[in-house]
Nucleic acid binder design. Structure first.
Lengths: 338, 338
DNA sequence: ACCTGGCACTCGCGGTCCGCGAGTGCCAGG
DNA sequence: CCTGGCACTCGCGGACCGCGAGTGCCAGGT
């Protein structure tokens, strides 16, 4: 176990390095953080920290730089989440309050988060898997064609065109619409399959084809749309990454564009409070020199989706974590109001 | 006016520079493009071309590089749009055919275009202003609350919640739904205001409040949604931009994230065939070292939206233009099938 | 009038060399 | 266990330089 002072030294190294982006030496450390000991002592501590793998030297005779393991310890033990200032909070609220629909809420959240953290922001659309059905609408487009519209309580609307095996009457469609809604309106998505299971049986044989086709499309839509989508913003902030540009930035941009990748990574972030995934902890090659801060948000007590930021491992963790948490809270409020 | 051979020299310079990314000298030119003249002659031609502003030297004693004006001439007079190969065409079609809904079509188009051109792709959602109403659906959510769902012929669905001044009966709502659809279904957006103008008068005074509120929300939605949105992809290709990275790439990323900026730029591209905006011709600071190739696409004869790519001024214009045009055509076909 | 080979000149690029200084490890003494 | 001192390492930035690609110009040929 590391002594109190050594932890203090590690904390100082992380803070300085994050600030200056340059390897930090023993002398500079003692000057900027009154550690009450001499550079020589700090050097010994640093030797130990290096031995243990918390810091490393880019080259002999250079200062030290935190390793992934060092950041890990910093985040777990040494950093306090930095709360936002009052004006910042007010700005968040004002900005989000102007949103008119779900797309707008997500869009504003992304821009906000990117601006606050000066990093790349990623916001997942509220998941459908935990939401409920507000209404299912069926419209006949042609003798054997139905448009199915699904409206959720988070304000999302999905629509599909269904081709039926045989023509059907307007009355049958109205009947189906009524009975379907009676069963599923207000219910959770996950409940729907069970609730509609015996619905075809209660219809005339003539209409079974229609009913079954519509239902299977509905269930498909529910499954498909449970795959979340996300919005990304602030990629311009990647340019602040480092000097060794193209090599670092390219795979990051590629990963960000692969929504599947991001969804998977965010899916793995399961801490109810907040998850920080550092460097090589990220299960994706292109993101091994980035850290991802993720937190869940939701309209009520329950999280329905996640949001977060992607930045260099060398980032301001306390500040970033504070901003991410604050934004998640306010978005939750906004969604609850809707 | 420039002689035939000088134009030929300019074309050769553009082609070589695009290929090698390095200033091209007189000797290399004569070797790679049998111009049937000696390097010295080419040098004289180059001197003239430089005098006229079509090419420039980065430094004395370096090769020549095309200027914006040079690319302009190249695109206008010297370049033939390069058609895609058969396998490429087949791949496009296969890829786009798999799309399930409008979002998917746009998403796939973006990825396709980015991959084909190896540049940043921008695709505008089909504009509502020229589309027609397929159906308007009204659902009562609460005694004085209606949900309005607008379905367009391009497959887009918009929804709004309307709060009415007073409660209303289910029958009134059905009545409104029927009459409203009778008037606007199949009609263009732009016609809708005229068509519904006298609708309130034909209802009982009791229901006028409902009718008017719903109608005004509908009209609002039409206006709001005429503001187009767009999808962007392939930003990772920006890393191939050049060596002087951060300075070039940053403003481009910023511009791309400002949808307003991109919409404005695309809006200015009014050539029915294809528009190429080169370097400083772009009315946006951050994009003065990029070129934008834009083309309209649509489900029928008429263009409903635009798509294109953003890349360095030093891009393969014939190839890019060919890819952009081909993709626009296939997307048009897909939309028409829906 | 135009093209061409020859020639002197320019100048960026890449390589080498070197001194400075920040940073280190170690040691002996408090 | 901390500290000041000391010798050592080594990356960085600047100075220097030679190569070679590229140029402009000129005189002679067609």
């Amino acid at each position: 176990m590391l002594s109190e002072r050594r932890l203090e030294v590690l904390r100082a190294i992380v803070q300085d390095y994050v600030g200056t982006e340059e390897p930090v030496g023993s002398k500079a450390l003692t000057q900027r953080h009154d550690l009450r000991v001499s550079p020589a002592t700090v050097r010994n501590d640093m030797a130990v920290l290096e031995e243990e793998g918390y810091i490393a030297q880019p080259h002999t005779s250079a200062g030290r730089v935190p390793t992934d393991k060092g950041y890990r310890l910093f985040v777990d033990k040494l950093a306090d989440v930095k709360p936002l200032s009052v004006p910042e909070r007010r700005a968040i609220q004002n900005f989000l309050d102007g949103a008119v629909d779900l797309d707008d809420v997500v869009g504003r959240t992304v821009r906000l988060l990117a601006q606050l953290t000066r990093q790349v922001a990623v916001v997942q659309y509220p998941s459908l898997s935990r939401s409920t059905v507000r209404h299912v609408e069926l419209l006949s487009l042609a003798p054997a064609r139905v448009m199915l519209v699904l409206i959720t309580d988070t304000g999302r609307v999905e629509q599909r065109v269904v081709d039926c095996p045989a023509p059907f009457g307007e009355a049958s469609l109205a009947e189906l619409r009524a009975r379907l809604n009676a069963r599923v309106a207000g219910q959770r998505f996950t409940e729907v399959p069970r609730l509609v299971q015996d619905l075809p049986e209660s219809f005339d044989t003539d209409d079974r084809g229609l009913v079954q086709t519509v239902l299977s499309t509905l269930l498909e839509t529910l499954v498909e749309e449970t795959e979340e989508r996300l919005m990304i913003g602030g990629t311009a902030n990647l340019t602040r990454f480092g000097h060794d540009f193209p090599l670092t930035i390219r795979p990051v941009l590629e990963a960000l564009e692969e929504q599947v990748v991001m969804l998977k990574l965010m899916g793995e972030a399961n801490d109810p409070e907040m998850t920080v995934s550092i460097g090589r902890e990220n299960a994706h090659e292109g993101l091994t020199s980035t850290s991802i801060v993720t937190v869940g948000y939701g309209s009520g007590d329950e999280a329905v989706a996640k949001l977060g930021v992607v930045g260099p491992t060398r980032m301001d963790y306390p500040g970033t974590m504070g901003a991410v948490r604050a934004v998640a809270r306010y978005v939750g409020q906004i969604l609850a109001e809707k």
